[in-house]
């Protein structure tokens, strides 16, 4: 079995989950509580990866990251090398691709917090930040778990975006799904099967966590197939 590919996928999924959690919390808070009229535009952008073919997303990210693209130029300026076909580029593309899987469960659970509790917190003197940390976030733990687990699993299994942005560089951008594809191309079905089983097991484990959490909180917070 190709341990390099598996470790790379795990490292990628971990990085993406952490970044999405850190960035998803403020973004989801804003989307859940803002009264701005144009909010739907941002909601649309966040949901885009759900319906966009990974190759389309990957294509534009690749263009942006390329030596003439804005992201690529910026990266070149700060780090002295390009962004396309690197691990960092893969992380960035995966963050965009998994954004709805992190942000939408967070929005759903923030919105399900009883607004009277937020009013109670305000009249007791707590500002927004304190209300978020002490009331909204603790009551949204199931949503946070689902967000992390789904963005992890989704990143583990992605193929199209990785292929477009990362290519197929062993130890740098060759993830599990690319590895499986390679094996099948070379008619190495036994090898492909081993890797595929690993992904299958991970997906099963992850979805059981999602459903176990749903069962515990007694209501559906969010699942990708209800949004699709």
């Amino acid at each position: 079995m190709n341990m390099d590919a598996l470790l790379l996928s795990l490292r990628l999924a971990l990085c993406v989950s952490v970044i999405l959690l850190a960035g998803g919390l403020p973004l989801a808070y804003w989307l859940a509580f803002s009264n701005w009229h144009g909010k739907f535009l941002l909601e649309t952008i966040v949901a885009m990866p759900l319906v966009l073919p990974p190759t389309v997303l990957g294509f534009y990210v690749l263009i942006a990251m390329g030596p003439h693209g804005p992201l690529g130029k910026l990266w070149q300026m700060f780090f002295g090398h390009g962004l396309a076909f690197t691990f960092e580029g893969l992380v960035l593309a995966s963050v965009l691709y998994s954004l709805p899987f992190a942000v939408q469960p967070l929005i759903a659970s923030f919105e399900s917090v009883d607004r009277t509790l937020l009013d109670a917190s305000a009249v007791l003197g707590a500002g927004r930040l304190r209300t978020f940390w002490r009331v909204i976030l603790p009551l949204s733990i199931p949503g946070v778990v689902i967000a992390v687990v789904l963005s992890f699993a989704h990143t583990m299994g992605e193929f199209g975006v990785v292929l477009m942005v990362g290519g197929n560089l062993a130890g740098v951008t060759r993830t599990v799904s690319i590895d499986i594809y390679d094996h099948v191309q070379s008619l190495e079905y036994a090898e492909a099967n081993r890797m595929a089983l690993v992904l299958l097991a991970i997906s099963f484990a992850v979805l059981s966590v999602v459903y176990a959490v749903h069962r515990r909180v007694g209501r559906r917070l969010w699942t990708p197939w209800t949004a699709k």
Binding site: T116, A120, R134
Partner: peptide, 18 residues
């Protein structure tokens, strides 16, 4: 509301359940 020092007991009480 944070600065008013006015206490408010809501109909649902709004105790923090956690």
């Amino acid at each position: 509301p944070q600065a008013r020092r006015i206490a408010y007991v809501f109909q649902t009480l709004a105790l923090f359940p956690h």
